[in-house]
């Protein structure tokens, strides 16, 4: 039995505010927060749908999380939703980031600031990997080998993502093709 996703946002404004609030609290990378808000809280997407949209967002050029906002916006409101989703993800956080940049140029020599930023990075890394493991639980075991390959190639060996995709995407799709009924 697969759980159904809840109905999505009722208006463009709700969509914009949802992504703005998501983006402006997403310390340490947006993805864990997106999973928390879209799947666990608002239930707009099931885990399977989330992984599927994320996979397509990653395949396309562009920041994954911006593509995800665009795709989800388009799913509910067509091109208007795509534009609003993207703007929700970018406008307020851009103002925040530039303000922080101006402040940082004043305080970057204070050691405490730098030490805190490094510690936040270490914690953020744990959150991101935790999200990946949660997502893996929704997948059939048969295909997870490709996930391990992708991790070893990009994470451990640090090969460029573009080249890894050039090899793994056709291989994974070709193998899946064999298993899908015509």
């Amino acid at each position: 039995m697969t759980p159904e996703s809840a109905p999505g946002p009722k208006s463009l404004l709700e969509l914009f505010l949802a992504f703005t609030s998501l983006a402006s609290q997403s310390f340490g990378g947006v993805l864990p927060w997106a999973h928390r808000m879209l799947v666990e809280r608002r239930k707009w997407l099931t885990r399977e749908e989330f992984v599927e949209l994320l996979a397509f967002a990653q395949l396309m050029p562009g920041p994954n999380i911006c593509n995800l906002a665009l795709l989800l916006g388009a799913r509910y409101f067509g091109w208007r939703g795509a534009v609003v989703g993207l703007l929700g993800m970018l406008v307020l956080p851009a103002i925040v980031v530039v303000s922080i940049g101006v402040l940082y140029s004043e305080f970057s020599s204070v050691p405490v600031v730098r030490h805190a930023v490094i510690g936040m990075g270490a914690a953020a890394a744990g959150l991101i990997m935790g999200t990946a493991i949660k997502l893996a639980r929704s997948q059939s075991k048969r295909w997870l080998g490709f996930g391990v390959l992708a991790f070893v190639a990009v994470g451990v060996l640090r090969l460029p993502v573009g080249w890894v995709m050039l090899v793994l995407v056709p291989a994974a799709v070709a193998l899946a093709w064999q298993f899908e009924k015509p």
Binding site: L31, A125, I128, M129, A132, F151, G155, A172
Partner: peptide, 20 residues
Amino acid sequence: RTGLSPLAIGFTLSGGWVVA
């Protein structure tokens, strides 16, 4: 869809690993 989902998970895990 079936083929790319595990790759998405692997790339996400890589992102965390690199930040760590």
